[in-house]
Design a protein around this nucleic acid. Structure first.
Lengths: 214, 214
DNA sequence: TTCGAAAGTTAGCGTACATTTACACCGATC
DNA sequence: GATCGGTGTAAATGTACGCTAACTTTCGAA
């Protein structure tokens, strides 16, 4: 409808695409839907992106950036090391309200490994996520808050596997998939895993608020 | 080509469908491909299944059965409780060579939550998996081999989240996504998590063989 | 004021795909 | 040896979708 300079329009298309891909998946989302959602006609999409596939890859990269930025912001606002650690676990983009929807784009992409371009994009994203988490774990270890029993690398992978699995289960809406009847949460287990036996003595509950803000 | 009684044909179609969906995904697999792979023409598919979707749901259920059966078989052949526990972790269908491919059907299905029928099928599968694992964990706890610090339910969910996340990462082919440079594996972490501090003293390496047999 | 580049539109092309219609063949039962 | 139920096929139908060609509108700089 309203006329927009190319750069702005491109951004808007990407934002719309991320939301649409997250909801409907790569195959499920149509260019017609996207155009309609963006308030534009289809050829505009092709003015800004070569094909649906390159648009999807751009959406993956954008999601990756959003995710890392959000996580980083969460970490920065928690200066206490224990806080930081809980944030690392709890502000996981795959787990958070806000990130979860968008993260479906990433999961969708993981299913398209038959396509080498998409595979490359997703590999890069995962590796950069791992780098981020491993660095954070190493920091926590140096500060003496996390057992050095396991390397930051392997700990980071475990956290990522867990977060991803959780993020996949969550939208299924299965009652109690992350909490037992006593109110113990998967997250509590993870904290104990990372903190070693200090978890029992440090012992505060992980913050709930992080779940809901951005 | 060869003439088959209805029941046999149905089975064969299902087997072919599971393999095809695993490889190409729900959206990616076409009825034409399926027919060709099964050595039959398309209308045959519709003689046995109402639609592609109901075929997909049948494929989900079949995969679910296969997965549980395989896992159960693995458990049965390990009578020593410690063995059983390692099998529980290592013979996870999402992790094993054999199951992993098929398990992509399940993951594909998890992405189709917009469809209520598919959602219902996948929920049921997950719940039955959880029941299986939780029962096994409870058993291990009663035998005194696993710390009772966490409930079987929440432990089982953690294991499932982990296994699922691992199973999603694996096909990306990212080097070292489950092992650090010292050869410590994610699986070792999990065992320690489950066994509590006994892990350090019990301390054998998890079996490698399970990874490769069926 | 004009004019050209950039932003947008209408209308369609070609194709791939799920699903169907109409017909042929086989084999057992009477 | 005709008939009937069940297994199979060839061919087509409708439609949804990615993508494009050709044309129009807007806007700012000269």
């Amino acid at each position: 409808m309203t006329r927009l300079p190319a750069a702005k329009r491109r951004e808007q298309l990407l934002d719309t695409a991320v939301a649409l891909f997250a909801e409907k998946g790569y195959g499920g989302a149509t260019t017609a839907e996207l155009a309609k959602a963006a308030g534009v006609t289809e050829p505009i999409i092709y003015r800004h992106f070569e094909s649906k596939k390159t648009l999807f890859i751009a959406a993956i990269e954008r999601t990756g950036e959003m995710v890392t930025q959000t996580w980083e912001r969460q970490m920065r606002t928690a200066h206490d090391p224990a806080h930081r650690l809980r944030r690392l676990i709890g502000a996981n983009p795959m787990v958070m309200e806000r990130g979860r929807g968008f993260y479906r784009v990433i999961v969708q992409a993981m299913m398209e490994i038959a396509d080498p371009d998409i595979l490359a994009a997703i590999q890069e994203h995962i590796i950069s996520l791992h780098r981020f988490v491993a660095r954070e774990v190493a920091l926590a270890q140096d500060e003496g808050h996390v057992s050095k029993y396991y390397s930051p690398e392997i700990t980071a992978w475990t956290l990522l596997h867990l977060g991803l699995g959780y993020g996949m289960m969550e939208p299924l809406g299965i009652k109690g998939h992350a909490e037992d009847e006593r109110g113990v949460r998967v997250r509590d287990l993870i904290e104990r895993l990372m903190l070693g036996d200090k978890a029992r003595t440090t012992g505060e509950r992980a913050e709930r608020s992080v779940h809901h803000d951005d």
